[in-house]
Design a protein around this nucleic acid. Structure first.
Lengths: 117, 117
DNA sequence: TTGACATATGCCGATATGGACATATATTTG
DNA sequence: CAAATATATGTCCATATCGGCATATGTCAA
């Protein structure tokens, strides 16, 4: 088995820098493919392929508008990512660092006390 | 150019389910490789390789402890991921959905009014 | 229908897996 | 030093890209 498909879930889809940029660009409003391609300075085919991946994991929606196809953000799929990551927030928090240090010192102290008694 | 290396950044490292599980397991305390392998029910070599990736992006630290090597969490590298995702929070928020609907209706109304005048 | 413009797809090449297995390395102990 | 235990690495295989290019598909206008 090779690496998981980028279309397997939001985690994989979002691992690609260009796709993250696309999602950011779609924050404000819907945009047609060519506009995205120009903004990202990548070819149109590549843009379409990234959009396809994003569509397959449900992070964007498409809507035909004449000749164009307008892509819009559907960020709900990012919620699982957010929930997973938020579970680690305390570990990079400065306060947690302090608490951590404090606990360590306490443990050392208790250990020393136990030996002494 | 092929897909970005899993060691290129936290986004890629975390795209792998097993690696996410490893990070979760390391939340409470440091653990040796074999313990992680047993917990994940994957082979030891595979576990070591996942740990290597996590080490290369700085999400875990290693510490020799006798024959064992204890891996510990260093979640600071997840902060960029969190910051990126949090930028989309408003878009999956129920309140935002409502606001969105409201704005759309307003726009429709204005459009109609403009026509009428 | 023919053009023109906007997108989507197919194919090729180079690369980086993730998993299984065998094996090298490192550390502790007798 | 040799054996035992814990890890790390190298190799092989199958697969999934990502990018570029050519080209098919779709839509609108004259």
């Amino acid at each position: 088995m090779a690496r998981a498909a980028t279309t397997s879930d939001a985690f994989n889809a979002v691992a690609e820098p260009q796709r993250r940029r696309i999602l950011v660009l779609l924050k404000g409003r819907e945009r047609p493919v060519n506009e995205l391609a120009r903004a990202l300075r990548i070819t149109q085919p590549r843009t379409s392929k990234h959009l396809r991946v994003l569509r397959e994991v449900g992070l964007v929606r498409v809507r035909g508008a004449g000749q164009q196809r307008l892509y819009g953000l559907d960020a709900r799929g990012l919620q699982p990512v957010h929930e997973w990551v938020i579970g680690f927030e305390q570990y990079w928090n400065e306060n947690f660092e302090r608490l951590n240090e404090y606990v360590k010192k306490l443990q050392l102290k208790e250990h020393a006390d136990a030996k002494r008694s």
